[in-house]
Simulated scan of single mutants.
Amino acid sequence: MHATVIPEQASRAISSDMPVVRTAALEIDDVSVSFPGRSGAVDALTGVSLDIACNQFVSIVGRSGCGKSTLLRVISNLIPATSGAVRINGLPSEDYQRKRKFGFVFQDASLFAWKTARQNIELPLEVLGIGSAGSRRARALELLSLVSLEGFADHYPAQLSGGMRQRVSIARALSYEPDIMLMDEPFGALDEFTRREMHDELIRIWRSRSLTVVFVTHSLSEALYLSDQIVVMAPRPGRVKAVVPVLHPREADPALRASAEYIRQTEELEALIHAQ
């Protein structure tokens, strides 16, 4: 079973005779990003166009410096695009940000050391003025249960393992019920065993919520295990090289990694990244 590679320019149905009907949750249209440098502007992204359907799990892969994290920050309106546009459910990204419908999980869990797991999850709700103290507490306990940390509500980050801290970070990102979860190498600092456990946890959490996930990773195996489709980026400046549908059904099944289809698709992704 070979992966089907869809060149980015053919990944949208575009006709000169008919209007384009957009049904994607996330629409990225011809986005470019340049940063000022000592010897002139540095192009981080150029002409990136991509549609991501509602409730899809999409991973972005590519060599270091290809603009994966930059693209994630443009989607969330943390940095502006130099040109082009991002729309989420039909709204410009800056308007969607004001609706507080993004969840963002970074590689570092970035928890407040002086707050318990429960208090870290409650904090965004408190800052945004959402709910009463009692309802925020109930929401935090519900999310701790979702990430399998029921007995750790009163533990501080220093008392938790790396995987546990990242689960708290995911729960915190889910606290205000986002539609889209953006994840930037969230498991990159974990050991391989914990990382694989977190893959299955993330699949379970994703299935329990109506979420669209955009997931940045350097690991092709991780992307293949988690995703509906994989966006392969080419570097300098970053651009979409191809969109690769994942052919196997996504299931939390560690045996999948040993299958011939999985190994073949991983090898094909690696060849695609290294191809000129």
Score class of each variant (00 low, 15 high):
residue 2 H to C: 07
residue 2 H to A: 11
residue 3 A to M: 08
residue 3 A to N: 07
residue 3 A to Q: 05
residue 4 T to W: 07
residue 4 T to G: 09
residue 5 V to D: 13
residue 7 P to F: 12
residue 8 E to H: 11
residue 8 E to T: 03
residue 8 E to Y: 01
residue 9 Q to M: 08
residue 9 Q to V: 07
residue 10 A to T: 08
residue 11 S to I: 02
residue 11 S to C: 12
residue 12 R to K: 14
residue 12 R to Q: 13
residue 12 R to W: 04
residue 13 A to Y: 05
residue 14 I to L: 14
residue 14 I to V: 15
residue 15 S to V: 05
residue 15 S to M: 04
residue 16 S to E: 14
residue 16 S to Q: 12
residue 16 S to Y: 06
residue 16 S to T: 10
residue 18 M to P: 00
residue 18 M to S: 13
residue 18 M to Y: 10
residue 19 P to Q: 08
residue 19 P to F: 11
residue 20 V to A: 15
residue 22 R to Y: 07
residue 23 T to L: 05
residue 24 A to E: 11
residue 24 A to M: 10
residue 25 A to H: 11
residue 26 L to E: 00
residue 26 L to A: 05
residue 26 L to S: 03
residue 27 E to S: 13
residue 28 I to A: 00
residue 30 D to Q: 13
residue 31 V to L: 06
residue 32 S to W: 03
residue 32 S to D: 10
residue 32 S to P: 07
residue 34 S to W: 05
residue 35 F to G: 10
residue 36 P to D: 12
residue 36 P to V: 07
residue 37 G to C: 13
residue 37 G to Q: 12
residue 37 G to K: 13
residue 40 G to T: 09
residue 40 G to M: 12
residue 41 A to E: 15
residue 41 A to P: 00
residue 43 D to G: 08
residue 44 A to I: 02
residue 45 L to W: 01
residue 45 L to F: 06
residue 49 S to H: 08
residue 52 I to S: 00
residue 54 C to E: 14
residue 55 N to M: 06
residue 56 Q to I: 03
residue 57 F to G: 01
